[in-house]
């Protein structure tokens, strides 16, 4: 599995480094336009990174299913489950890496914006802000951030597995049908419709029990634990969904694939 993930990254490092270099160049260029340039870079690059990420994780799997180079991967003695799991892990790691990259850009540009607007960087202010966050005086704390991140991660994984499953279904059960990309997208919509139908049934069942759980603390604010409780059913549904879809994809890759 580690080997599989390793080669996923070896295959994309050239493209990724090209994107990063372009971003860096764009950033340097926009820095010359002053703080406004820096701000617009942060907006544009967020969008660009997001689009790149989405395109890249789809392409990563679609190329292996539809191009001859996919034989390199599918000839190896790895089970379908292992292959789909390694794709998924690669996508998640890549997501974190890009998030980190964006975070670094925020740091650089943030510093620049502060300096160029004539303000000194006041570290005590920053520390104070973080401290505020940690103590919860802003109404939320790191716990909330963590819960949100967890929910976002679950959502991301569920999303990727849905996309991958749609592509796997089209390449196995419907391997003869033309307009593969479009067809995959239709399958993707169908899976989503089915999943939202199933999960709404699930929510209907648990809601009566769930409403009795008290998540609002005495201050009238939702604590991190409370937030986790509120999001728990959704996260659980997403995780179950991801596991089930990964299983379906793995099974289809193993038993029905026509490359």
């Amino acid at each position: 599995m580690i080997s599989l993930i390793k080669y996923e990254f070896i295959r994309k490092y050239k493209l990724a480094s090209m994107i990063l270099i372009t971003m860096l160049a764009l950033n340097l260029f926009l820095l010359t336009k002053g703080a406004g340039g820096s701000m617009s870079f942060l907006v544009v690059s967020l969008l660009a990174l997001f689009v790149f990420y989405l395109a890249d994780i789809i392409k990563m799997y679609s190329d292996d299913l539809n191009k001859k180079t996919g034989y390199m991967l599918f000839m190896t003695p790895n089970s379908g489950y292992k292959i789909i799991s390694s794709k998924l892990l690669t996508a998640v790691i890549e997501g974190f890496a890009l998030l980190l990259v964006y975070f670094i850009f925020i740091l650089i540009n943030g510093t620049y914006i502060i300096i160029s607007t004539g303000n000194e960087i006041d570290y005590s202010q920053i520390i104070k802000a973080v401290d505020n966050l940690l103590s919860g005086s802003l109404g939320f704390n790191l716990g909330h951030v963590l819960v949100f991140l967890l929910a976002a991660l679950a959502f991301l994984i569920a999303f990727i597995t849905t996309v991958y499953t749609a592509m796997t279904i089209r390449k196995s059960i419907f391997s003869e049908i033309k307009f593969g990309g479009l067809f995959s997208f239709i399958i993707f919509l169908l899976i989503n419709w089915l999943l939202s139908f199933l999960s709404s049934k699930f929510y209907d069942i648990i809601t009566p029990y769930y409403n009795t759980v008290d998540t609002i603390s005495g201050t009238g604010r939702v604590s991190a634990g409370g937030l986790a409780m509120i999001l728990l059913p959704m996260i659980a549904v997403l995780i179950i969904q991801a596991v089930a879809l990964t299983g379906i994809s793995g099974y289809l890759l193993e038993k029905k694939i026509n490359l």
Partner: peptide, 11 residues
């Protein structure tokens, strides 16, 4: 298995 197509990663 050696496929007849060029299946090697071009990069």
């Amino acid at each position: 298995y050696m496929p007849t197509e060029n299946y090697l990663y071009p990069s």
